[in-house]
Design a protein around this nucleic acid. Structure first.
Lengths: 330, 330
DNA sequence: CTGAAAGCGCTTACAG
DNA sequence: CTGAAAGCGCTTACAG
């Protein structure tokens, strides 16, 4: 079945062989005059190369698949952008594969769908075992983001250290009472443990200062109003200069909102450290722990590219360190 | 360049012709015995069809590309899910193309990238003119979601009517003072005007009741704390039973949070109607305007499928009506 | 029901 | 630098 304009039509129009047209398409060595004739012909005929035909003979997709959960924050978008950016420089394209249904997961496992058409695959923020099972066998490089497995390359942030940094910032403000705002991690396929690591780091550093805090000092927030909001309000009213570690900037935002309604001023009436360095935090003076998000995306992209050109490369685990970003709230 | 196992290897292993293998792959009529032999062979050799080869001869991708902005709420995920679901039933796959950079937009316009490999394309929530320009010429069906253009099919919600519904709910609570919480629409490539339509509908119905409200009664919220939060607090304190229309459930959430900190009870001390019927709203008793999100996704998928099988089909504009969802807040 | 063959649109040694 | 030809892995009339 014939369809549009092919390389053959262009060749005829330009009075050259198809090989030559292919060469101008692929930056092969072609006489400048010939090249311009071919380009003319392509324009005239409105030629567009057929991707599938190319893939069929070349056996390389110049794509990398990035599997993501159903995310809702800017975190993933920022990773995606920096990732896509690096890939683009090497003429690669990133293709998003959101795991939005069981069916999609099944397709992925069965190697149907897009996965077949990429040179490498990234799992971003998803648990390997919960998705692919414990020992997936892929024919192409697999890179884990925010997750670790001895057999696969990974890029991740040291969340424990991040928690320590948060404690340190709060201690510097001479806080006496410490609180953490945490979430119940029930997100199906996502990597879990990240929040716990942050909390452990937080506790760890406080303990070094002989400060121990009880379960009562942990507020579980489900991102909404209700009991957690009230508990935050209580803390703000009851304690003098409490130190609060919000395990996510999003939780910190709730604290700020409650505080605003109560007329309490951050950095004065209470101290607050978030986590993520979301883009709005600067404007609102929120001290927070910054993850090197753009760097994660970039390093992952570089790693993918490296693995593609040399699949035999040894497994790498790239650990990135978060940084304390001091602003007015702590 | 040869790579893995091909249909030819399978044919040899099974002792049949390649045509026969192809037929079992495509559910053509094959003798049951022959079929099972072929399937055996495929299993034994661990055969996997080459998508590109198939596309090359079939000239159909069984994919539809869905172009989306950098979204952050469940709205798009829900659309995506129902969309993908319907598509899947017809053996189609949805491919996400987020417009996260200028480069990506350029690629799209130049027909590079994934767009070349889909049978139809959907623009979800994006402005046609701001992305493709006023008169895009595509070789495949294009369907607009939450946007309209006389030359292209579209599926959208009647936001004006939604605003009217919100006003009606508030009026039923005998409110005297009316407020709206709105956002400044500055999102680059997205469809704009949606919020304005809601607001117009809201005003329209109030006017019919001889109620007019001034600019002062509109709070501009940028999703965060600060002046807007304080203004909401003021409203809650100053007015007796104010009626508040939050143009998005997300804004309604802020109102609820401020109210919680102030000890004000929704449905008693003030009345509140949101928009979207986000999944958390039920639990928190927020009255809201529900958009038929799943239906939008489904109808769009159906439309895409119809257009693919009959490109000559006349242009359709499918308008869906929002519905008032009464709960305890109004 | 089934095999042999042509064709889909590209790339890439090969020979010139 | 360039043309003719073979090959990538599939599908699909065609003839049997």
């Amino acid at each position: 079945m014939k369809s549009g304009i092919s390389i053959r039509d262009v060749a005829k129009e330009a009075g050259v062989g198809v090989g030559t047209v292919s060469r101008v398409l692929n930056d092969g060595s072609v006489n400048e005059l010939t090249r311009s004739k071919v380009i003319q012909a392509m324009k005239k005929l409105n030629y567009e190369p057929n991707f599938h035909a190319r893939m069929l003979s070349i056996k390389k997709t110049n794509r990398v698949l990035i599997i993501v959960p159903e995310f809702k924050t800017e975190f993933h978008w920022r990773i995606l952008k920096s990732f896509d950016n690096i890939l683009d420089e090497s003429n690669y394209e990133s293709v998003l594969y959101p795991l939005i249904s069981e069916k999609r997961l099944t397709k992925l496992k069965e190697d149907k769908s897009l996965i077949n058409e990429s040179d490498a695959v990234i799992m971003c923020t998803l648990s390997l075992s919960k998705t692919f099972g414990l020992t997936p066998r892929l024919k192409k490089p697999l890179i884990l983001m925010e997750n670790r497995h001895k057999n696969f390359d990974s890029v991740y942030v040291d969340n424990f250290y991040g928690g320590q940094l948060a404690a340190k910032m709060l201690l510097e403000n001479n806080c006496h009472d410490f609180f953490a705002i945490q979430t119940k991690e029930t997100l199906n396929l996502m990597v879990s443990g990240v929040m716990d690591e942050r909390l452990e780091g937080f506790f760890n550093l406080l303990q070094e200062e002989k400060i121990s805090i009880t379960e009562d000092n942990i507020v579980f927030s489900d991102l909404l109003i209700g009991p957690s909001t009230q508990k935050i309000a209580q803390i703000l009213k009851k304690f003098r200069k409490p130190g609060i570690f919000a395990l996510t900037d999003t939780f910190a935002l709730i604290v700020l909102q409650v505080a605003a309604s109560l007329g309490k001023i951050p950095g004065k009436d209470f101290f607050l450290v978030g986590f993520d360095n979301q883009s709005w935090t600067n404007q609102y003076g929120l001290s927070t722990i910054g993850q090197p998000i753009e760097e994660m995306g970039a390093r992952t992209a570089e790693l993918a590219l490296a693995k593609i050109s040399n699949p035999a490369m040894s497994v790498q685990h790239i650990k990135l360190m978060p940084v304390a970003i001091k602003r007015s709230s702590a």
